[in-house]
Nucleic acid binder design. Structure first.
Length: 561
DNA sequence: AACAATACGAACCGCAACTT
DNA sequence: AAGTTGCGGTTCGTATTGTT
């Protein structure tokens, strides 16, 4: 849409056979500066009952006569009406004003002019339209309704014969005069006030693009053949319901032990290289021999390296005494003692708790671990709660913020001492601590869910590669317990409908299991339709073999060579 | 490198409004 | 009945933060 200069204003209104832009005109009324125009027109289309209800114009086909509220009116054919209308407009270029004309009057009139081969003359005389609906929305914001009727009643506290073309144009003219600052003698014209003109000019519409009225292709129902019967695929495997997210529950915090781990990497299945702990008066520290490679970035952080040939662990190239993981964990549990404790660590909710749990389980020490450790407190959200607004909640940044000094960060023993000192700050209240505690059962749930998500995600990889689904959405699906295999089951049983239903299934929090955006639903299901039988990629053993020799191995977390 | 939470902007949907 | 626009509420993608 481009704006055009506003020339002499002519307010118009059409009554038609209905809503569509190809509706036939029944009445055309116009109001210029000092002259008015009105013609009734014989239609060649049926008048929609609801339209007739609105404007009261009816057509008797047998008589070929137009009636207004049951009274016959003089009507001419469309060609004559339009040519008289153009004659009425005169030779001066004009701009037509009408309410909602951008979407209604302009296209209807344009189509009629075109059908009567009068487009050239029309375009020569009419430079454009001003749609008064958005115009009034802009000038008088905040009204509850902007229908022409409501506007008139709002400004003049009286009603008029709405939907009679001539009264409509008179009413609209009166409304438009409101927008001008009338001069002393009350002779303001449409083009008189620059400010108003400026506002108006942004609501000028040009002629609608012809193309948009010609492409009326029927579109086929995309779901026409989707309702084939649910063929029994012989399998009674069920599609799992959305897996619930782990439920966090606070635990009583009696004895506190601050811990820190240095590991081979950031994954949950990383191997522990150093474990340090600090209780009330006693401390614990063990170096551990890993069975996984140390990630280079991890090594550059903590300085721990492993010589496989020697079977020796080095700290900054100095050999340190290290034991195997089972011994280290046993001694840690012995250190903890028999009275249940809560372990404190920085970001442990997503790191230390998971790594430690995974290691305990792999070493068959889970039962003992659970009997001695009731849960964890994550000090990241704890400090976010007790001193909000800091730039960073990194442990080193917190230490610097409170004590204005640094410490040997990423050496497990100095880390626990630093964290202990931070926890002894007065701002760290008992209540805040309890609020950020969580039980071992939560850790257990998170670990289980992660392993399963990882497995499920494998099945989505071909689809991600094919760009039929985003990594994000595949992760969401995997997290909810879905493998692509389940979608194929749904497809075999209930066709596309089945796939859609599974993808849109509601989770506990009321959101979609995967997505309910049509665009993504289509992308995903079209992949299923294209590859309906490739479930073999989801073979479990294949996954383990494929990823078994990975740098950081997959989901099993095994500490066995 | 792995991964959950968080936050913010873009994209998107459903609905109401408006004309006969 | 047809079709656009704007508005508000979702949903998606992306960047950032914290742990080794």
């Amino acid at each position: 849409m481009t704006n055009v200069p506003v020339n002499t204003a002519v307010v118009i209104d059409l009554e038609t056979t209905g809503f569509g832009c190809f509706s036939h005109i029944l009445q055309i009324a116009a109001l210029g500066q000092n002259k008015s125009f009105c013609r009734y027109v014989l239609p060649k289309k049926q008048i929609h009952p609801e339209a007739q209800e609105v404007h009261g114009l009816s057509f008797n086909e047998d008589e070929g006569r137009l009636y207004l509220n049951g009274q016959p009116v003089d009507a001419v054919n469309i060609r004559q009406a339009l040519s008289e209308f153009l004659e009425f407009l005169g030779d001066e270029a004009v701009t037509l004003f009408a309410h909602n004309c951008k979407l209604f009057d302009a296209p209807v009139l344009f189509n009629a002019m075109e059908a009567c081969a009068m487009l050239a003359e029309f375009e020569r005389k009419v430079t454009g339209f001003v749609d008064t609906l958005p115009l009034f929305r802009a000038i008088y914001p905040g009204l509850s309704s902007y229908s022409q009727k409501s506007l008139y009643e709002h400004f003049f506290h009286e009603s008029y014969a709405a939907h009679e073309a001539m009264s409509d144009v008179t009413a609209l003219k009166r409304l438009l005069d409101l927008g001008f600052q009338p001069t002393a003698d009350g002779t303001a014209r449409v083009t008189s006030t620059p400010k108003f003109l400026q506002t108006i000019s942004s609501y000028i519409v040009t002629y609608p693009n012809e193309d948009s009225y010609e492409n009326h292709e029927e579109y086929e129902n995309a779901f026409g053949d989707d309702f084939e019967d649910g063929d029994d695929d012989g399998s009674d495997e069920e599609i799992p319901p959305p897996s619930p997210s782990p439920q966090l529950r606070n635990v009583p915090v009696n004895a506190a032990v601050v811990i820190d781990l240095e590991t081979t990497g950031l994954a949950m299945t990383s191997h522990i290289l150093q474990i340090a702990a600090l209780g009330q008066r006693k401390s614990f520290c063990r170096y551990v021999l890993p069975k996984k490679q140390i990630h280079p970035e991890a090594e550059s952080v903590h300085g721990l390296s492993f010589d496989e040939h020697e079977g020796r662990l080095y700290l900054n190239d100095q050999p340190v005494d290290a034991v195997n993981i089972r011994q280290a964990l046993s001694e840690f549990l012995e250190f903890v003692g028999d009275d249940p404790v809560v372990l404190f660590a920085h970001n442990c909710k997503w790191f230390d708790a998971l790594v430690l749990f995974n290691a305990m389980e792999a070493c068959g020490l889970l039962a003992e671990f659970e009997s001695k450790v009731t849960g964890f407190v994550d000090t990241v959200p704890l400090f976010k709660a007790v001193c909000p607004g800091l730039d960073s909640y990194k442990q080193s940044a917190l230490y610097d913020h409170f004590f204005r000094e640094s410490y040997a960060a990423h050496e497990a023993m100095s880390d626990v001492r630093a964290l202990k000192r931070l926890l002894d700050l007065r701002c760290v209240t008992r209540d805040a601590i309890c609020l950020h505690s969580f039980g071992l059962d939560y850790v257990h749930q998170v670990v289980r869910r992660r392993r399963e998500t990882y497995r499920n995600l494998q099945s989505w990889k071909p689809m991600i590669k094919a760009r039929s689904v985003s990594l994000n959405m595949a992760k969401r699906a995997a997290k909810s317990g879905l493998r692509v295999h389940h979608l194929r089951l749904a497809y075999r049983r209930h066709g596309l409908t089945g796939v859609y239903l599974v993808l849109q299934q509601r989770t506990a929090d009321g959101t979609a299991r995967v997505t309910c955006t049509p665009k993504f639903l289509e992308q995903i299901s079209s992949y299923i339709v294209t590859y309906p039988n490739e479930d073999r990629f989801e073979n479990h053993d294949e996954y383990q073999n494929t990823f078994g020799d990975d740098f950081e191995d997959g989901g099993d977390g095994s500490y066995e060579g």
